[in-house]
């Protein structure tokens, strides 16, 4: 065994493991699934993307400068914001900025709470902790936020008659859209709650598996995983709430009018 516990894998090992994805391709050919081309492209992309990230992280870890870590975090936030918006069926002018602000607030608050308050890393920007933790926050918050956005925009678009009926009877903008807002945040949070519910039963969570493979005692890996799951649930709740509030702010005027025309369906 390696001194950290995990056996280091070389390119040769990775090349051998590609036999597994080749097997998946053979299944596709044999059953005429017509997936072999997509499988090859996806596998190649994944290898290139992950090795690129690996080289970037190696560089960032080696330099260990606050500005470099901050630049990496900003890049991650921008990429995550774009991804959250592109998953939604509807959009409005400014949705990209709103998604960025949402992820920036969510990522900063939850990651800072865990790295500074719980793990107490030194220095505060230690990239070995900050980057993977923020990556996990974004990976989960993205799903929640895009579900929340999608549902909220669909509700405001398709239930505009009902919302305007409430407004015409004296509801504030907040009262008129409270139900869609609540449903959207709820919808965004459900995947994270489901993941927590089955963690350790259906599958071992990725971070915990990684730590055990790297040689950590299982209970330490479990403690980290629990902290991470709590962090992800908070990130998802916070992200969905901020996203919903920003949508509310964009699509309702100060005069308690719904600007449903601002919602555009993607082609």
């Amino acid at each position: 065994m390696h001194e950290l516990g995990a056996k280091p894998l070389g390119l040769e090992d990775v090349a051998w493991s590609s036999a597994l994805v080749v097997f998946a391709g053979v299944v596709s050919v044999a059953l005429r699934l017509d997936l072999e081309r997509r499988l090859a492209v996806a596998a190649s992309r994944m290898v290139v993307q992950l090795f690129a990230v690996g080289y970037v992280l190696t560089y960032v870890f080696a330099i260990e400068r606050a500005w470099l870590v901050a630049a990496a975090l900003l890049g991650m936030t921008i990429a995550a914001g774009r991804s959250a918006v592109h998953r939604s069926q509807r959009k409005y002018q400014g949705v990209q900025l709103d998604a960025f602000v949402t992820l920036l607030c969510t990522g900063t608050l939850t990651t800072a709470f865990v790295t500074q308050g719980i793990i107490q890393i030194e220095p505060w920007y230690n990239p070995r902790y900050v980057i993977p933790l923020l990556g996990m926050v974004f990976g989960n918050a993205l799903t929640g936020i895009s579900l929340c956005l999608d549902h909220l925009l669909e509700s405001l678009d398709e239930r505009r008659d009902r919302i305007e009926m409430a407004l015409s009877l004296g509801a504030t903008a907040w009262e008129a859209c409270r139900q869609p807002l609540r449903e959207s945040v709820r919808r965004g949070m459900i995947p994270t709650i489901n993941t927590m519910t089955v963690a350790g039963i259906v599958s071992l969570p990725g971070m915990m598996t990684g730590q055990i493979l790297a040689g950590s005692p299982p209970l330490i890996a479990v403690a980290y995983q629990v902290v991470v799951m709590f962090m992800l649930s908070a990130a998802c709740a916070l992200g969905c709430m901020i996203a919903a509030l920003l949508v509310h702010r964009r699509l309702f005027t100060d005069l308690h009018q719904l600007n449903a025309a601002a919602i555009v369906r993607r082609d």
Binding site: D161, E164, M165, L167, S168, T172, H256
Partner: peptide, 24 residues
């Protein structure tokens, strides 16, 4: 102006009923 009443209060005094009856 409606703003001086506050829009919700104004709309309770000037109530609009749309052509299509929308129910909660």
């Amino acid at each position: 102006s409606a703003e001086s009443f506050g829009l919700p209060t104004y709309r309770r005094r000037v109530v609009y009923v749309a052509q299509r009856a929308v129910m909660q």
